[in-house]
Design a protein around this nucleic acid. Structure first.
Ligand SMILES: [Zn+2]
Ligand SMILES: [Zn+2]
Length: 303
DNA sequence: TCAATCGGACATTCAACTTC
DNA sequence: AAGTTGAATGTCCGATTGAG
């Protein structure tokens, strides 16, 4: 769509000379691919390469279970912004990734020049094993036990109750931007944040403006819940609206249990199917609460 | 009007495969 | 062994729906 933002792509631009392009410390909020549809180019049309500059959508490596269920944007912090917003920070847990199946035969690849290395034309039909793990017959039969059908390996999880507040900022791997880390909130900047576009959830397209200190300083929450999102900057305590239109955290001094955390009554049990009690099977069964279960919608292979 | 739902586009991961 | 390919798997945009 009209999601063309000059900055947004620069961080992941395959063309850029350095893979680890940094967002330059220009306090620009991170821009995501989606901007309100605006028909404008960052540069005069003449300077733009013919193809419509389509920014690349960025995604977190691992969405929390709540965002995952709601199919909404998550972030790297835990609890994530969205969970905090909905007052379900306690429920903000990294989802578990399913282990990829092994032993799937793939057939010859086609090379760039077009021809495919035709090893042999035999179809690789897939036999579903008792465990429900599809294993190509070729493999199942031919390979004695080289690749034992690997059932979903036990997920590696954090110790119960342990979710590092902020894992050390990833060393800006290519394609990843280490910009959401709390340090940046430690120093409120004088200038008001640039107007932020908001996502459909009212989530800032960028990240929380620096008026918000890391709650680590301010909130009496147990450390595992204290985050930069949870408490407004003192200067804004009186205000009821965050500048980014986010719901303010309840003025309460405790992290109110989920429903009460809403500034106004959430009629239909918040979007977050997240309400722990409400974790229900989606009718299409695309989420089942645990990553090891059914694929969420969209997980199905594309044609 | 605004939040919840969800189809499907898009991004990422990583084992199979190919080439050197 | 290193590089490439491409399907599996995951994220989340944005249209739609429906409650208040
Ligand atoms: Zn989240
Ligand atoms: Zn979360």
């Amino acid at each position: 769509m009209g999601d063309s933002n000059p900055e947004s792509d620069s961080q992941h631009d395959p063309q850029s000379p350095t893979d680890s392009v940094q967002p330059q410390m220009t306090m620009h909020p991170i821009t995501y691919s989606s901007m309100p549809t605006m028909h404008m180019y960052p540069f005069p049309p003449g300077m733009v390469t013919s193809q419509p500059t389509r920014t690349k959508r960025r995604q977190v490596k691992n969405a929390c279970t709540n965002c995952q269920k709601a199919c909404k944007k998550c972030d790297d912090a835990r609890p994530c912004l969205r969970c905090v917003k909905y007052g379900i920070a306690e429920e903000c847990i990294d989802s578990q990734r399913k282990e990829r199946q092994k032993g799937i035969k793939r057939g010859p690849y086609k090379k760039r020049d077009g021809k495919t290395t035709n090893v042999d034309e035999q179809q690789v039909d897939v036999a579903v094993q008792p465990q429900g793990i599809p294993v190509p017959q070729a493999v199942a039969a031919a390979v004695p036990s080289a690749t034992p059908p690997i059932p979903y390996a036990a997920p590696v999880t954090y110790p119960p109750g342990f979710y590092p507040q902020y894992p050390a900022p990833p060393a800006a791997k290519p394609g990843e931007t280490p910009m959401y880390y709390p340090q940046i909130y430690f120093a409120p900047i004088p200038a008001p944040p640039p107007p932020q576009a908001t996502g459909q959830d009212g989530e800032p397209i960028g990240y929380p403006p620096p008026q918000y200190y890391p709650a680590t300083f301010l909130a009496p929450y147990p450390p595992q819940y204290a985050t930069q999102y949870m408490m407004p900057h003192p200067a804004h305590l009186h205000a009821h609206m965050r500048p980014d239109a986010q719901m303010p955290m309840a003025p309460a001094h405790h992290y109110a249990p989920y429903p009460q955390a809403y500034a106004k009554p959430m009629p239909r049990g918040a979007e977050v199917a997240a309400a722990p009690q409400m974790v229900d099977a989606r009718r299409d069964g695309r989420m089942d609460h645990t990553r090891m279960g059914e694929p969420i919608h969209g997980a199905q292979a594309k044609a």
